[in-house]
Design a binder for these strands. Structure first.
Ligand code: FES
Ligand code: FES
Lengths: 131, 131
DNA sequence: CGTTAATGATACTCAAATAGTATCATTAAT
DNA sequence: ATTAATGATACTATTTGAGTATCATTAACG
């Protein structure tokens, strides 16, 4: 059972790459080889990062992407929220779909706190750490 | 992104139920209502638990399942291994399919240790705790 | 004995989530 | 005008998860 999806995986690689280069603008074409993913797919991910405010983009010839934030402050936990809507340990623990069993469920609170710790650990890792 | 699958979820409920009752044998028909799952599906899960040594089974009329181990020593981490083959934080961290990037990957070791901690936390929760 | 109520094993189908592609629109440098 | 880039979005394919169905085996009950 996987916890981090491909979007996050590729996003990390791309952001690390940008943090190392620190060019004014890197186009997708200039990243896809090193990130090891197809152009269109990486583009889709970069667009998500743009919408979520992690990167700036410049359209048109000579354009591309650049980091919008200090890499030392881009945390894995944030990427996880933005790119895959967080983490849920089980179905039950989320939203309103409590499993019927029970008001007195002893499992749910434990899972909730584990989830919290997991996110803290992810928050402790920044793009800078990985660059 | 989910971490615990339905098998684990239902298995926990069934085991907790059995730990509370402590009958010599509980048939699937006697659990499915409270576990809130279809008979055939629960049966499949119980069979996995049997193969993995968590429960005993008795065939034939009057048969059913019973705990094979002290509920205070059946740990969530074990159920996770037996029923869903463990947890992997990302694709990369598993098996031989390292992502090419890199011998010098800074992310992988961190994820590995997070995974370890997660499993420790799951190991700290027993069926008895939940009963 | 035969019927019934149970599990064992396994194959199969259905549904949902992930992963990836394709297309058209927009923008700006040359 | 052409080219090289992103924005938005619809679409397809693959994989994984969830759930069913079937047949075989076993043992109590009458
Ligand atoms: S497992 Fe659903 S509320 Fe506890
Ligand atoms: S992300 Fe694949 S080896 Fe680090």
């Amino acid at each position: 059972m996987k916890v981090l999806n491909k979007d996050v995986d590729y996003a990390v690689r791309a952001l690390v790459l940008m943090a190392r280069n620190d060019k004014p603008a890197t186009p997708v074409a200039g990243m896809r080889a090193e990130v090891r993913v197809s152009g269109p797919f990486l583009r889709k991910i970069m667009q998500k990062l743009q919408r979520a405010g992690f990167v700036h983009s410049v359209k048109g010839r000579g354009g591309g992407f650049s980091l919008a934030r200090d890499p030392g402050n881009i945390r894995l936990s944030e990427l996880v929220s933005a790119l895959q809507g967080g983490i849920k340990l089980n179905d039950c623990a989320s939203e309103g779909k409590l499993c019927g069993l029970h008001s007195a469920c002893k499992l749910r609170p434990r899972l909730a706190s584990m989830e919290g710790r997991l996110l803290e650990e992810l928050a402790a890792i920044t793009v800078k750490d990985l660059a």
